[in-house]
C-alpha cells in the first residue's frame, strides 16, 4: 500500500487545522470533528489523485466545510450523523477560551467571520480570500478591519492591527 505512509503523515499534520477551521465557522465542535473525519475518509478513497494536488489540505478543507455547511439545512439528521461511526472514544469538550473565541466569532456577520477565519486562521492572503468569497479586495479588508474591531469589543481585549490587512 504505497500511499498509506504519505496519507498518514498528511492526516496527522493537517487534521487539527482542518478541524479548527470548521469549528470556528460552525461553532459546533462535534460537528467540526465529524466533518473533518469524514473528509479524510473521502480523501483516502481517492488519495492517488488528491495526494498529487499542490495543496491537498485546501481540498480537505473544502470538503469538510461542505459537509458541515450541508448539514445546516439537515438538522433533523444531525443527531444520527454524529453517531454515524458508532460509539466514538470520549472527546474532550472545548475549553472556555475556545468557546469564548468561537462565540464571539458567531456574533460577527457571516462575511466578516469567513474573512477573519480564512485570513487569520487558515492563513490565506487577502487577495485569495477575496477570490474565494467573491468580493473585492477592498471589501475583504474592510470586513477584516470591522471584524477585528468587533472581536476586540466582544472579547474585551484590544487587538493589534496587522500591517498587511
Amino acid at each position: 500500500m504505497p500511499d498509506a505512509d504519505s496519507f498518514d503523515d498528511f492526516y496527522r499534520t493537517t487534521r487539527v487545522r482542518v478541524c479548527a477551521y470548521v469549528y470556528v465557522l460552525t461553532g459546533d465542535f462535534a460537528e467540526a470533528q465529524d466533518a473533518a473525519q469524514e473528509a479524510y475518509v473521502r480523501a483516502w478513497e481517492r488519495w492517488r489523485t488528491v495526494g498529487g494536488y499542490a495543496d491537498p489540505e485546501a481540498w480537505i478543507r473544502g470538503v469538510a466545510w461542505r459537509i458541515a455547511a450541508n448539514r445546516w439545512r439537515k438538522a433533523r439528521n444531525r443527531l444520527t450523523a454524529h453517531r454515524r461511526y458508532g460509539a466514538a472514544p470520549p472527546t474532550p469538550g472545548p475549553n472556555e477560551d475556545s468557546v469564548a473565541v468561537t462565540g464571539a466569532l458567531r456574533r460577527l456577520p457571516a462575511p466578516q467571520r469567513v474573512a477573519i477565519v480564512l485570513h487569520h486562521l487558515v492563513g490565506l492572503p487577502v487577495e485569495q480570500v477575496a477570490r474565494d468569497t467573491g468580493v473585492p479586495v477592498g471589501t475583504v479588508k474592510a470586513r477584516l478591519s470591522r471584524g477585528r474591531t468587533a472581536l476586540s469589543v466582544l472579547l474585551g481585549s484590544n487587538v493589534e492591527e496587522p500591517d498587511h490587512a
Binding site: F7, V24, F29, V41, A43, P89, P92, S98, V101, H120
Partner: peptide, 29 residues
C-alpha cells in the same frame, strides 16, 4: 495580542481531540 493569538485556544482544543487512527480512516475509505 495579535489577532492570530485569539485562535490559539481553538487550535489547542482541536489538537486535544481524540482522532481515529490513520489505519481506521483508511479502512473506512
Amino acid at each position: 495580542p495579535e489577532i492570530d493569538d485569539f485562535f490559539a485556544p481553538v487550535i489547542r482544543d482541536a489538537g486535544r481531540t481524540v482522532w481515529d487512527e490513520p489505519a481506521e480512516v483508511r479502512r473506512r475509505g
